[in-house]
Amino acid sequence: MTALLAVADYLPPGRVPIEELAGDFGLTPMQVKVFRRYHRLGSVRRDPHGSLLDLLRGAVAGLDALPGREHRVRYVLHARTFPTVVPYPHNPVRELCRELGLDRATVFAVGHHACASGLLAIDVAGRLLAADADPGGLALVLAGEKAFTPEAGMVPGTSFFGEGASACLVAPAGDRDRVLSYAADLRGEFDTDAPEQALEFQRIYADALAAAVLAAVERAGLTVDAIGVILPHNVNSVAWHQVCRTLGYPRERVVLDNVATAGHVFCADNLVNYRTARQRGLLRPGEPYVMAAAGAGRGATFSAMVLQH
């Protein structure tokens, strides 16, 4: 059963209050006030002089389990919120692999689930390792992007993207952070600019995300009461409060600590929040927990994964 051998993340030190971003996105002071008061967004991280390579390198640097295991890494996956993040055929992930000595790995990007691609990448890595039937094989799953263009800077009416990255070493088996189930609800009907679909998307958002959580929990043979903690995507706090109302799940057990200080770190949110959950002692041995994310922006995907610490 797929297991996470090690998890690390990197958030650059530069913080930009959302008020300073208002001009870039043509927001009125009232709209910014809504984000701060209601969505509980405060500032986002930015690394103005750094590249995508710098962000990913920062995350991998925290993976203490990687040094000495480089030769076992069969796959390196970059989970993408935005399918194209560098000019083709530039490839910073391959550059990073060269730096790290990951010469034997198959290196590729996986995505098209927007911000839910991070969970997809963990599942993909696990399936590949299982099919290889090589108990020593490992996969390195990377996430994180630059907020390089307005589309990658904010989700209209919903969130601001923050720069940062995560790195996760996936093993085909292990006794910690085992992947029990994965659910993905792909909603390609939202691949449109029609305003009525945007309203419909807002209307179904919390219910669809809650349904994905429920589907993953049921697939794992569990009920929501058994879930110790939810590691969300950092889209905003209020969307998760609504999900909690729908699920009947206590909002105190959703790790929303980083929403106000980091923003929505693309596909890296769940693992950034994993670190916070561990620091706060929220992950207990043997207890199942959920990572969940919704990806939006011309097509929507609602995903959840149940793991056992």
């Binding site: 995505g111 927007a114 909603r187 691949d191 995907t301």
Partner: peptide
């Protein structure tokens, strides 16, 4: 090579137009 919609979650759209609404994703950059 990227297409003329480099930021679009095309695989999710294709799930919508494919019979069975399959699980769908993209593999690239290799």
């Amino acid at each position: 090579i990227p297409d003329l919609t480099p930021g679009r979650a095309t695989a999710t759209y294709l799930s919508h137009v494919c019979p069975g609404t399959p699980m769908a994703f993209a593999v690239s950059d290799q």
